[in-house]
Simulated scan of single mutants.
Amino acid sequence: MSQEILGQAGGIAQHGNVYRPDSSGGGHAIDQLDEAAAEEEGAAAGGPCTLSEGLAGLPAYLACKTGLLDLFSNVARALTLLAGLLAASLLLIWFYLHRASTAARKAASYISTAERAYVFGGPTDLNLLPSRPSVRLAMENYGKTPALLKEWLVDFAQVEPHGNRPSYDSLKAVPTGEILEPDRLFSPATVFKSDIEAPFFVVGYIKYADVFDQVHMTRFCVAVAPDGKAVTAGPAAWSARD
């Protein structure tokens, strides 16, 4: 009886010996799982460096093993970033240059407007003798720089001019090269005589250039009454100035 019990106990012991965990065998299974996981992570990251396609794939394999692929990738990203920064810098420089050139043009326009010559004039010394009325021309430079007078014209009309495009008899234009200094009053010695008795209209212009080589014109149209009174007449274009 006791032997049977011992035999059973021995059997249980042997059975326990058969299913007792082996530390080395269990460790080997865990290692295999870790390696498989590592391989999966490596595959997800792009996989290990492999030599394929014979010698044709050797340069790519060497580049992978030495880290040149990562280096080239980093260099490409750096160059892309540098190109973006350079483009942004060029755009910013263009923006400021555009603003600077616009400001410079405005300043130049202001200077030419503020410093140029302004010549105003018209008929003067009206003489209403019955035989032949006459006038002279007078002008003054109200600007800050000299004016180069190019030509002037004085003519007479019996009917008030009309229309917004003044027209003159070009044969009556008088060319000149007179320099008119600032604040100087100038009246040519010429006396302009009319074949028409009052009332009549005196029309004409003064053309001149400023020191910035811009040509300007001052026009005038004056109605002369029989009693000698003179007032501006005609459409605004006939008395315009620039």
Rank of each mutant, 00 (worst) to 15 (best):
A87P: 03
L85S: 14
R20P: 06
C221G: 03
P166F: 05
F220N: 06
L91M: 10
I111N: 02
L148G: 08
R132P: 02
T190M: 10
L137V: 01
D227N: 14
R116L: 07
D34H: 13
A60K: 02
F192G: 07
A36E: 08
L148N: 10
V159R: 15
D155A: 12
A189I: 07
F192V: 02
E151S: 12
L86A: 11
A78W: 02
I12Y: 12
G163M: 01
L6P: 02
P146T: 07
A78C: 05
D195V: 09
T66Y: 07
H98D: 14
A38N: 11
S131G: 09
D210C: 01
T80V: 12
D183N: 15
A209N: 02
P175G: 05
G204D: 00
A114Y: 11
F212K: 02
A29F: 11
G54W: 02
Y118C: 11
A117L: 06
S194L: 08
T145I: 05
A45G: 15
F156I: 03
G67R: 00
E41T: 13
S2A: 09
L97P: 00
R219N: 11
I93K: 10
S109M: 11
Y208V: 08
A56P: 03
R165G: 04
S134H: 01
I93S: 13
A223D: 07
I5A: 15
T102C: 12
M1T: 06
A107N: 08
N127H: 09
A173L: 01
S239L: 04
T176V: 09
A13F: 15
G234K: 03
